[in-house]
Simulated assay, not measured.
Amino acid sequence: MPFNAAGLRNIVLALGLMGACGAVSAQEAVPLTDELFDLHWVAIEYEGKIEGVELAPTTLVVSDREFGHVGGQTGCETDWTAKVEIALPKVTFSEVEGFYEDSCPAYKNTIALLNALEQVSYAETSPEGLELKAEDGRRVMLMVAGG
């Protein structure tokens, strides 16, 4: 079954987004905390992404906070890795690497993902999820928990 990014947008972060009566009300941004980076994330939007060509969700996981190791899977089901520095709200990625082959229909998304990560300067939360933003304030990536 192909990955449906639109369906992920409907996932509500399980971090206090329930209303007082237990029913889901209007989504609110959760606080930006270090603990958010302990979750597994799915990148549902990023600059340059072409919709409808991914074979799998694009994911992000901080695997080692002490040494700043981060990585995940691309839409071509290949690995990507980087170094991450988190000093909230500042978040930056360096040494971004990933493998891609042009035989995968989503290889251009892999390139776009790697380029987007290199532009990240800081993080914010919104009702939509975790936003990674460039120095100029534009959103270069939107992620939801659950990857």
Rank of each mutant, 00 (worst) to 15 (best):
M1N: 13
L36N: 03
Q27T: 15
V144E: 11
F67C: 01
T110P: 00
L88W: 11
L113I: 03
T81G: 10
V53N: 01
L36P: 01
K133S: 03
V30S: 07
Y46V: 01
R139L: 14
S103K: 13
S25D: 14
A112G: 01
E131C: 12
E118K: 14
T81H: 12
R139I: 15
T59R: 03
A145F: 03
T59D: 02
T110I: 07
A26L: 12
T110G: 00
S103T: 15
E118C: 00
Q73V: 05
V144R: 13
A116C: 03
P2W: 08
L117Q: 07
I86D: 08
L36G: 03
V96N: 03
G19L: 03
G129S: 00
A56C: 05
G98W: 08
E101D: 15
L114N: 02
L117C: 03
K90P: 00
K108A: 11
S126N: 04
L55I: 10
A116K: 04
L36W: 03
V84S: 04
E128F: 10
A116T: 09
E66I: 11
E77S: 14
A43Y: 07
E54C: 08
L114D: 06
V120W: 07
L130N: 03
K108T: 13
G146I: 09
G129V: 01
T125N: 06
A43F: 08
H69Y: 15
V70L: 11
H69N: 15
G72Q: 10
V84I: 15
A116D: 04
Y122M: 06
E28I: 05
A43K: 02
A5N: 08
D38V: 06
T78N: 15
V84R: 04
L132V: 10
V96S: 01
S103A: 15
V144L: 13
L130W: 06
I50D: 09
Y107K: 01
K49D: 04
G48N: 07
N109C: 06
N115R: 13
E85Y: 04
Y107P: 00
A82I: 13
E118Q: 14
L32M: 02
R138T: 15
I50C: 01
V140M: 10
V53H: 07
V84Y: 06
T33P: 00
F67E: 13
V24G: 05
P105V: 13
A106Y: 13
A56D: 12
V70R: 05
L117E: 07
G48P: 01
A20I: 05
C21E: 15
E95C: 02
G52M: 10
V84P: 02
P127Y: 09
D64S: 10
G129I: 02
K90D: 14
E101W: 06
L8G: 09
V84G: 05
A106V: 06
K133H: 05
L88D: 10
L132Y: 06
A56H: 07
D38F: 05
G71D: 09
E51V: 12
S94F: 02
Q27I: 12
G19F: 03
